[in-house]
Design a protein around this nucleic acid. Structure first.
Lengths: 227, 227
DNA sequence: ACCGGGTAAGCGAACGGTCCTTCGTTTTGG
DNA sequence: CCAAAACGAAGGACCGTTCGCTTACCCGGT
């Protein structure tokens, strides 16, 4: 019982210390092939309502091949969620690399433009996957961890935009950056969701509406002066 | 072949025109009992990942009893989505019945308060069901119809708030009510989503942030005067 | 330049389990 | 007494996953 026989199933080097049989790029390409096909099916039908048979058929591979690259359906789902929300975060990060960093309304406008762009590009609308990921995050702890970490990072970008604005004096210094960033993120997520559920929202008109002063101008919030 | 024999399965009056065997209120109560139990399970685990066996056990009834009240799982899902988003719409409608109708930031603040309230009240967080309903709407046409109609109505309430503000002169007359209402709805939906995914957001601080002027005060949008 | 050895990549039928739903039966209550 | 209400075992389809097998490829030796 339980000798020191190594469990070699995953560790190729214990078996054979030569170079891989096929180039690493080929393996990555196959993995992407599976992820792309699965993303399309999950975008159309949701994670749980889509069967692996559907994913496998769409990938053009066999069940055995798919399960060589992903140990389970849950692992595949986690990989897809990580890719989709991770790419979103990467796109939003460029907001901070602009010089000068835009003001909050400008940052949201740029982010909304990115959402509209990614929704229309390619055969699969990744914003649909994002909505499915929200639902999945509420029931799958691993997915929730990924979504929590990534969306918190995105909100952190907006916090930084607010801080820069406060340094520049265009935003009241006593405003709460964390919650102001939350309202900015809401504007982006709300655009994404309304576009999917209620039909096309015009990004230009939507972002223009963000700049409309909607508090009564008489009483509240003297912005720059009168600190 | 196809005689005129009536298909009596659902029409009780063709069978028996007397009084019902049990009071109508009892039937409605049983229906609610099923919906309540199913709502709890769907809130915890999503629509598609939750089995009918789970719903049936939670309801305290048998499979046959549940299927007497709902023809299928999809019909049960549709009934739950209709109830949850319908109740949300009913709550938001009172915004218009206040006198005077609040300004946009005030309307959003009230709506956010309602979301936070309904999320904390009762054993089931209905905002979780709302997120699941968004995902379901993307794959189930009947659910999509319900969600589209109801959320469009909610947005219509915000449009009305904007119109009243424009009449009162507190909102620029050339602002687009439709898209301004969309940003208001985004603020509410974004609060709901961030509260669930990223942890507790403080409703008071969030709504306070909504009133922070976030456009550069120097160049853009001279609000009331000097139009 | 060619070839055979051996391993990883890929295949797909089959498996146990779970799914939604049905229906013959039992219980209930007016 | 009898129809409606409720029951719950069973049906048949489909689920995610496995595993014995075939195919294809790289490598070392000739």
């Amino acid at each position: 019982m339980a000798t020191s026989r190594p469990t070699v199933k995953n560790d190729r080097s214990l078996y054979y210390d030569g170079v891989p049989r096929v180039p690493e790029s080929h393996l990555a390409a196959r993995r992407d092939q599976i992820i792309d096909a699965a993303t399309a099916r999950f975008a159309a039908n949701g994670f749980q309502a889509t069967g692996m048979a559907d994913v496998i058929a769409a990938s053009g591979l066999s069940a055995g091949a798919v399960y060589r690259y992903f140990r389970s359906k849950d692992e595949l789902i986690a990989a897809i969620v990580e890719r989709v929300v991770g790419e979103a975060a990467a796109r939003f990060e460029v907001l901070l690399q602009q010089d000068p960093v835009p003001d909050p309304a400008g940052a949201v406008a740029t982010a909304v433009g990115m959402v509209a762009d990614v929704a229309g590009r390619g055969p699969v609308d990744l914003t649909r996957v994002a909505v499915q990921a929200w639902g999945e995050a509420l029931r799958n702890p691993e997915v929730h961890t990924v979504v929590d970490r990534t969306y918190r990072a995105i909100r952190g970008f907006f916090v930084e935009v607010v801080r820069r604005g406060q340094e520049a004096g265009t935003i009241p210094a006593d405003a709460d950056p964390q919650h102001l960033a939350a309202t900015m993120l809401s504007a982006v997520l709300g655009f994404l969701l309304q576009r999917l559920l209620l039909g096309d929202l015009d990004p230009a008109a939507y972002t223009a509406a963000l700049r409309v002063p909607w508090v009564a101008p008489s009483s509240a919030a003297t912005p720059g002066s009168a600190g």
